[in-house]
């Protein structure tokens, strides 16, 4: 941006206002998580890490973290496989009907999740999937598909179709072309989609509230219950850990993008 026009005062002030508005609520949890009090509050006399110790020493919190992690991982796998195949299929066939299918795939982020959750609840009850690991994985996987479809479709839009023709012309079967030419080219897009699908599952609450009760107790769910039942500062500590983890994932995404753009 060297040599570009410098933004005016109004633009600068508004940009900073928006940025602070976005970041401030997140930064407030950092001091709260280090409070020396026994309830959710700002530190009074000293900073303390004991709430972090509580979280990392509690079987319940750790159990939820582990469970959330596995659910996120499994549902990401589901979303990546289904979303990538869907995006590649639509791209290859590329008719008006495939545009419609791509639109349909975005429904989970268009429909309010509470509506989705109610629907899932009724449906899963009949299938016996309520309060099961598999049920939550399916629900999170399916609602994670749009993120993968969007990122992979974007990567494919930048893919030179002549590369596919070149591969086929040299005798490569569809499978070989997919493995050796198309997938390596769109891998950064798939990785981005996977990261977003993972984050989606990792902090998803509404659906879990509906379809899980006792056996499946994800991290967002435990935070939610904690807020309703007692104001334990451990929740702030968990929230900080959550934010740190998510930021790391996004940084990874940025690094992958940079590497792709450099190649």
């Amino acid at each position: 941006m060297d040599g570009a026009h410098r933004p005016g005062r109004f633009a600068t002030v508004s940009a900073w206002t928006v940025a602070i508005y976005l970041v401030l609520p997140i930064t407030i949890i950092l001091p709260v998580s280090m409070t020396d009090q026994r309830f959710l509050s700002l530190p009074k006399e000293a900073l303390s890490l004991r709430h972090y110790a509580t979280v990392l020493g509690s079987a319940e919190w750790l159990g939820s973290i582990v469970q959330s992690f596995w659910i996120a991982l499994a549902s990401t796998l589901l979303a990546v496989v289904a979303g990538t195949l869907c995006a590649i299929g639509c791209w290859r066939i590329s008719r008006r009907s495939t545009d419609l299918i791509r639109g349909l795939m975005l429904l989970p982020i268009i429909i309010p999740s509470i509506v989705y959750a109610v629907g899932l609840y009724r449906y899963f009850a009949r299938l016996g999937l309520l309060d099961s690991f598999l049920g939550v994985v399916i629900a999170h996987g399916v609602t994670g598909i749009p993120y993968v479809v969007i990122t992979v479709a974007t990567a494919l839009a930048a893919f030179d179709p002549r590369l596919e023709q070149a591969a086929r012309g040299m005798g490569a079967s569809l499978g070989q072309t997919l493995r050796w030419v198309i997938l390596p080219r769109i891998a950064p897009g798939i990785a981005s989609g996977a990261i977003f699908a993972f984050i989606h599952s990792w902090d998803e609450l509404v659906i879990v509230l509906f379809i899980a009760s006792r056996d499946v107790f994800t991290l967002p769910r435990r935070i939610w219950d904690g807020i309703n039942e007692n104001l334990d500062p451990a929740m702030a500590a968990v929230a900080v850990l959550l934010v740190v983890f998510t930021v790391l994932l996004l940084l990874l995404d940025m690094a992958l993008r940079r590497r792709r753009d450099a190649a």
């Binding site: 030179d160 002549r162 590369l163 023709q165 070149a166 086929r168 012309g169 040299m170 005798g171 490569a172 079967s173």
Partner: peptide, 13 residues
Amino acid sequence: ERRDFGMVFQGYA
């Protein structure tokens, strides 16, 4: 893929 023809594409691909 079964014709066994070599091809040089516009822009090389």
